[in-house]
């Protein structure tokens, strides 16, 4: 990074650290923080959409749709997150490959499952064989976003479902008395008002989502935790910057990062609650 970094062994301490902290692996470490923020930025809206869908399904009049919504939230809420995070990417990944296998290789005469190995024809590999590593990373990352959306969508769905029921029934009756259809009453009266009831639950889920991002590590993505462990481990003089076991400092940095993000989120949600509560007789808006 810096011109004086050519021979780190001879450097005074501050320069050694300047070089060390800007080494290629450290830049990758810093980039992984960005990746986590991107994941949050994508997973949160996706979970919100899944959740809204789930909540509307749970309110549906048509019983099978209602069962679908209830089944989705019940299954995801009842299964440990980690199991789901390991299950969704593998299941979706293999599902896509098995589907492509049927389409592209109709003449393949070996079974897809050979003992423990899942083997499809080379044309059905996703991402395709020989694709550069960033394509693989992107694919893995997309599966991770999907897993987060599915899991957190179920929690969001339950929260939104509860929030919809918290909107006073009398308001919906009034809307119907004014001649609004069910859909109109839903859009004009129910949905705008439910957010104030949903916000405390949603902010909780957002906090849990932030804290769940290290699960990326489980999916083989080189995230913050991966790099903290990798960089912190003792390095012998085979490396340019040998050092003893510094994992405690790296994990401390990760801890501070998460604390900062959740702290900022908390302030944001406090303000949002005040804003959404305007004109409503809630404890929050009374204080504001």
């Amino acid at each position: 990074m810096f011109a004086f970094c050519t021979d780190p062994d001879t450097l005074p301490q501050w320069q050694w650290f300047a070089c060390y902290l800007t080494s290629g692996t450290h830049l990758a470490f810093y980039w992984s923080f960005v990746v986590v923020m991107i994941l949050l930025a994508l997973a949160a809206p996706a979970a919100l959409v899944m959740g809204l869908g789930g909540a509307l399904l749970m309110r549906a009049r048509f019983a099978p749709l209602r069962w679908l919504g209830q089944g989705y939230t019940a299954i995801v809420r009842g299964v440990p997150d980690i199991v789901f995070f390991l299950f969704v990417p593998i299941a979706v990944g293999q599902g896509i490959e098995a589907l492509l296998h049927q389409v592209r290789c109709p003449h393949w005469d070996m079974p897809i499952w050979q003992g423990n190995d899942f083997i499809v024809c080379p044309e059905a590999r996703v991402p395709p064989r020989g694709s550069p590593s960033w394509v693989r990373d992107l694919y893995g990352f997309s599966l991770a976003v999907l897993a987060f959306a599915v899991v957190f969508g179920a929690f969001v769905g339950n929260t939104l479902h509860g929030a919809m029921r918290a909107v006073p029934r009398a308001q919906m009756e009034t809307a119907e008395a004014y001649g609004m259809t069910r859909g109109q009453a839903m859009r004009r009266v129910l949905l705008p008002q439910m957010w104030i009831y949903a916000l405390p639950g949603l902010s909780n889920i957002w906090m849990i989502l932030i804290k769940a991002t290290p699960l990326l590590f489980l999916l083989g993505i080189q995230d913050i935790v991966y790099w903290a462990r990798e960089l912190g481990g003792a390095k012998t003089s085979r490396y340019t910057y040998p050092h003893p076991d510094w994992r405690v400092w790296y994990f401390l940095a990760v801890l501070v990062f998460y604390l900062a993000v959740t702290w900022a989120s908390q302030i944001f949600f406090e303000r949002l609650t005040r804003r959404v509560g305007r004109g409503l007789a809630t404890a929050e808006s009374a204080r504001a």
Binding site: S23, G24, T25, L27, R238, Y239, T240
Partner: peptide
């Protein structure tokens, strides 16, 4: 697994 194979400080495989 140095010295067989390891990621060096430039984030490249070495060894």
């Amino acid at each position: 697994y140095p010295p067989y194979n390891f990621i060096n400080d430039d984030n490249e495989l070495d060894g």
